[in-house]
Computed example of a mutant assay.
Amino acid sequence: MIWSLHGAVGHESDLRNFANAMHESAPAKLDVRRLKLWQYLACCPMPLKKFATQLSADVARMDNSPQLMGYSLGGRLALHALLDSPDLWQSAVIVSAHTGLSDPAARLERQKTDAEWASKALRSEWGEFLAEWQNQSVLAGVELPDRYRLKAERNEIARSFMDWSLGAQDDLLERLGDLQMPILWVVGDRDEKFLRVAEKACAALPNGQLEIVADCGHRVPWEQAEIFHKLAGDFFQTTKSQT
């Protein structure tokens, strides 16, 4: 089964079309479990490493050959899960994700910025928060629907900016050499910052494959859905058949 992790200020329905495409994939159907990340933040703080251990434990109870797909925030969470339990995961697709900041000053600055986002998610009028979030240049190109339904999860979303901040994350680049499973890293050609991250990550991965999607920004699975679904489907089919 493919376990899929959505992005920041997102929900599991964002990956419905991905799940449908994988299920219709040839030569064999691939089942996808779309996880609601906010459930992990519903009761208490959940640091990145604790999330990774919890997710891997949850998956191991239900699946003895899981595959993993994570987009953006979900990609960072996926990397933590892979590093937490490298023998569990069969393969992974990482999309538009960051490996971490090496500069302590940059990490502190990012934590400050994310604390501001947390406050806005918790206290601002919800529509204003969504408009400001979508207005970021990195998200230009496509707007995901149904963000208003996330108001019910605003407490958990606010907590995610704190617990799962890029500033709270270790720089994982030097640890990627420990991951022996096949990993497909997908990034848009117009997503310049994340393209540089992807190139460094794939150079460090023993079994990494980089796919740069043309005419595309950060939201690859929606900006170029057909291309992404074909890349992911072929990769998951191939790596599934190798076991």
Rank of each mutant, 00 (worst) to 15 (best):
A106M: 12
E192Q: 14
H218G: 11
A60R: 15
L173F: 10
R110H: 09
H218Q: 12
D215T: 04
L79Y: 08
D63H: 10
Q90N: 15
A118G: 13
K240A: 14
D189N: 14
K151F: 00
Q242D: 08
V138T: 13
G208Q: 02
A118E: 08
D103I: 08
M62Y: 08
P221M: 06
T113F: 12
Q169A: 14
I2Q: 09
Q242L: 12
T238L: 10
W222K: 09
S124V: 00
G75P: 05
R149C: 13
L144P: 05
D87G: 14
Q209L: 06
Q180A: 15
R149T: 00
T243W: 10
R154G: 01
S102G: 08
F18P: 03
N17A: 07
M181H: 07
W117H: 10
Q242T: 09
K151H: 07
R159C: 05
R175I: 04
G74W: 04
V220A: 05
A8Q: 09
N64H: 01
E143P: 04
I2P: 08
V186Y: 09
S137A: 15
F18Y: 12
G7H: 02
L122A: 14
L41R: 01
S72D: 03
A121D: 11
H229Y: 15
T53C: 15
V142L: 03
D170Q: 10
T53K: 15
M62G: 11
I183N: 02
E132P: 02
L205Q: 09
E132H: 04
I2L: 14
E132A: 14
H80R: 02
P145L: 03
A158D: 05
Q90R: 15
R154W: 00
D215V: 06
W164T: 08
M69E: 04
A105V: 03
Q209W: 01
G141E: 02
W38C: 00
W89H: 05
I94T: 01
